[in-house]
Write a protein that binds this DNA or RNA. Structure first.
Lengths: 234, 234
DNA sequence: TCAAAAACATAACATTTGTTATGTTTTTAT
DNA sequence: ATAAAAACATAACAAATGTTATGTTTTTGA
């Protein structure tokens, strides 16, 4: 089941992990700490790239506005994730927006500094480009889910993905997102999302406290998805 | 409205266009012509990359199997398009599959030859990576459409996209795909697709000959989508 | 060219999802 | 701490989509 999660995970927390400790020091020394308030944008569609970010603490959503205005969230970044580098590899503008879902502590690497790092550390460019390739596959998988799965299945899949990500990165339990954001991830209205959540609650799959969702029975979810999750659950 | 189309187009037919005629010659001299039979794969998920392709004539579908087996098509390549390079920029395996929809004439550049070209032509690597960035945005837009639009809107958008692409590349009129493939692009069943096509036909938006779909009234489509297509239609 | 296979069109019914509406709970800002 | 605003839960009804079924047309391969 490890494969299940990696199919939907950018793995952008690993970008600096392959480096030697010496190289890592080089990278981390160039970082400037920043505080970004809940609701502020790290970057926005059509904006000019200034550098890359690594999240030290907190969550952020990456989204794009469809041409009729509504927000489509296609990724939630959490602690450790590196982001904002696509635009630097040749693009002029950002292709999407990124907003802090809570007060954020981030490390920033300015554009010029980042390019110097790429020159100083030969393995780095390859690692980043390789990851962009991986992320490409993740988006393709997200497309397959959105196009082929019904609401309950989309919700189930995204609950697994989100719990896994939050647990892995922030070591927190439970999924804490607004109903609107969650609906904008799985492609439905908050009302329909609410109905599915209620079903899951009634079936004992999840519990809800305030707005935080806790997965109570992972096996039931895998069953719902017809995945044999019992042999090798994450 | 040019922007509308480019939001959904990989623009991978332009990759060699920015080169000087001398550089172009260098590239085209390395190409080996191949014939690929309808139904054969140019490459497949998990396969080891061997090189890149440029389509001289014909159509191919790029798809991925969701983990419950069904095929999700996320791009249709046509004449002029270059493909298969993602996997070469750092990935070990292909992330998706590509199948000939009709007998295909392609030009092939072997992996090693391609890497040598990247060294010989400095601008080339940047162009390719820039395009991968652009393609990333295209996938995000596809996600937004699949998540937010109902069936008729998804069909309408994809009819526009496909007609535009076939016209531009192959200079053929009409959209000639199996109902199953078209359904696997827009994320529905062939039966539901048929119902929407019939509606469009009854409203005078399209005409169908055999299985080929012709757009008869583009304005009605833009109206359906609430896009002001009248001022500057493509 | 002809028979078999595949693809297509269409309809009826079932199910899922969207929408509108109302009241409650939680968060935010003063 | 409190009032106002935002977010949430839920239900009833409407609309969209999925599913099953049947007959026709088109394509394929011998």
């Amino acid at each position: 089941m490890k494969k299940f999660y990696s199919q939907f995970d950018f793995q952008s927390e690993l970008l600096f992990e392959a480096l030697t400790s010496e190289e890592k020091k080089l990278v981390y020394d160039t970082m400037e700490p920043l505080i970004i308030k809940k609701g502020s944008l790290l970057f926005y569609e059509e904006g000019i790239p200034t550098g890359i970010f690594q999240i030290k603490k907190g969550k952020a959503k990456k989204f794009k506005r469809g041409f009729s205005g509504t927000e489509q969230i296609f990724y939630i970044y959490t602690t450790g994730d590196v982001l904002g580098y696509h635009a630097l590899f040749g693009e002029e503008r950002y292709q999407d927006s990124c907003e802090a879902l809570e007060d954020l502590e981030v490390n920033f690497i300015a554009k010029d500094v980042f390019f110097q790092l790429l020159l100083d550390i030969p393995a780095l460019q390859r690692t980043f480009i390789k990851n962009i390739g991986h992320e490409f596959g993740v988006l393709a998988n997200i497309i397959a889910v959105l196009a082929q799965k019904n609401l309950n299945a989309r919700l189930a899949i995204n609950l697994l993905i989100l719990e896994n990500r939050f647990q892995k990165h922030d070591n927190t339990s439970g999924i804490d997102l607004t109903r609107e954001d969650l609906a904008n991830i799985i492609g439905t209205s908050p009302e329909s999302l609410g109905r599915s959540l209620k079903q899951f609650k009634d079936e004992g799959i999840i519990e809800i406290d305030k707005r935080v969702i806790f997965i109570k029975n992972e096996d039931l979810i895998f069953k719902l998805l017809n995945i044999t999750g019992t042999e090798n659950t994450p």
